[in-house]
Every structure is written in structure tokens, then in C-alpha cells.
């Protein structure tokens, strides 16, 4: 667990990942997105057995290989070299997304540029900039049982990323269940966003000041 000094306000990114790890329940099959979500794997408690799915065709993702043991045929969806476990299985992209689309994956944790109070998510495209593509994100948010977003609460300009409605092209509509930001944990509920947990030294007023989306009790 990363330690935060008593005076520090909110969670830094490792602390956000550590908090997100609490979303993983024993027996879950999970898909972790690229970036901060990948860090979540480092904070899974030893007594919680979780199987990580990689959408390029693997269940039971292992850690990075030791130097010299990298295998070009064994990568994760971020194209990083990884290893297999005793529990691993491999399959095609069609089978992988049958698992995802078919609702067999318990939890997806992914990053976002914007989330709306209705649970819409935008994380793949900024108009006018080079568009790299959505990869598997649209399938994940549409198909996985529970979708948790980890993101900074505000963008670089200091504007809320938790919005009344997304301004960027959507990745999915009404699909986000929970959002973890540097300020706390938030659920998408009827009528808006509910504060579930505040990060250390963060007040409800801090959240209100930093959030455009409708907050509800």
C-alpha cells in the first residue's frame, strides 16, 4: 500500500489504483485497461483470487517476465511482454470478446477522459486530433457486468471530468457503475452522482467545487 502523509489532500495515482483494487472480489474475472488500471494488479490482496483477462486472448495473466525470458508470442493488450500462470488459458479474439460481450467478465476497470452523471463514458477520441482507435473499449463497457472508471477528477485546465453530459464522442452510453478519482469514490445512481467515499483530507465541499455533474444523496 502506498502511504500518504497525513496532510496530503486526496489520492495520488498509486493510491487510486490501491483503492480500485478493493473492487476486486474473490473469484472475479477482471479486465484491467491500459495505464493506471494496469497498476491495480499490484494491489490485489493475497487472499483474493482474481483471474485477469487480456482481450488479445488470454485468461490468467501472469507478471512481467524475468529479463531474458521475454516471449514475443506472449503479450497483454497493452502489447507488453507478460507470463503465463498454472491457471492460464489462451483463445482467439472472437472467443475473447464473446466472454466480454456475453457478460461473463465480472469487472472492467478502465481510464476515461470524461464521465457523465448518467454513466456515459468518453475515452477514445478527441475531434481534431489524430484518432488512434477505440480498441476493445466499446466492447468492454457494453458487455462487462460492472464498469469502474479510474481517472483524475479534473483535467489539466482544472475543469471537472465528471460532467452533466460528455462533450467528447462517447465510448458507451449509461454503462459506468463507479468512478474512482483523486477525491474519492462515486457511484452513478438515479438522478446523478452519489459520493460513496472521500479520499483523505477531502471534504464534501471540495467535491462540490470540483464537480460539474449533479451530486445526489
Amino acid at each position: 500500500m502506498p502511504t500518504t502523509a497525513n496532510t496530503q489532500k486526496g489520492w495520488d495515482r498509486p493510491a487510486m489504483a490501491a483503492r480500485a483494487a478493493k473492487e476486486l472480489k474473490d473469484g472475479f474475472y477482471c479486465n484491467l485497461g491500459i495505464g493506471i488500471p494496469t497498476l491495480v494488479a499490484n494491489y490485489i490482496p493475497e487472499d483474493v483470487h482474481v483471474t485477469l483477462q487480456s482481450e488479445n486472448g488470454m485468461l490468467g495473466m501472469g507478471p512481467f517476465p524475468f529479463e531474458g525470458e521475454e516471449d514475443a508470442d506472449l503479450i497483454n493488450a497493452g502489447k507488453q511482454t507478460i507470463t503465463e500462470l498454472d491457471t492460464s488459458s489462451y483463445f482467439s479474439s472472437a472467443d475473447s470478446f464473446a466472454m466480454i460481450r456475453g457478460g461473463h467478465i465480472n469487472l472492467s476497470i478502465l481510464g476515461a477522459m470524461e464521465v457523465s452523471e448518467e454513466g456515459d463514458i468518453a475515452n477514445w477520441m478527441i475531434p481534431g486530433k489524430m484518432v488512434k482507435g477505440m480498441g476493445g473499449a466499446m466492447d468492454l463497457v457494453a458487455g462487462v457486468q460492472r464498469v469502474v472508471v479510474i481517472m483524475d477528477h479534473s483535467n489539466k485546465k482544472g475543469e471537472s471530468k465528471l460532467l452533466k453530459s460528455c462533450s467528447l464522442p462517447l465510448t458507451g452510453k449509461a454503462c459506468v457503475d463507479r468512478i474512482i478519482t483523486g477525491l474519492g469514490v462515486f457511484d452513478v445512481v438515479k438522478g446523478g452522482i452519489k459520493v460513496i467515499e472521500l479520499a483523505p483530507n477531502v471534504t464534501l465541499n471540495d467535491v462540490k467545487d470540483a464537480t460539474e455533474a449533479q451530486l445526489v444523496d
Binding site: A94, S96, F97, I100, M134, D139, G143
Partner: peptide
């Protein structure tokens, strides 16, 4: 194409 849509 979304990756899963493309695969399917």
C-alpha cells in the same frame, strides 16, 4: 471497428 465487433 470496435475490436470485438471486428473479431465477430
Amino acid at each position: 471497428n470496435p475490436q470485438g465487433t471486428m473479431a465477430e
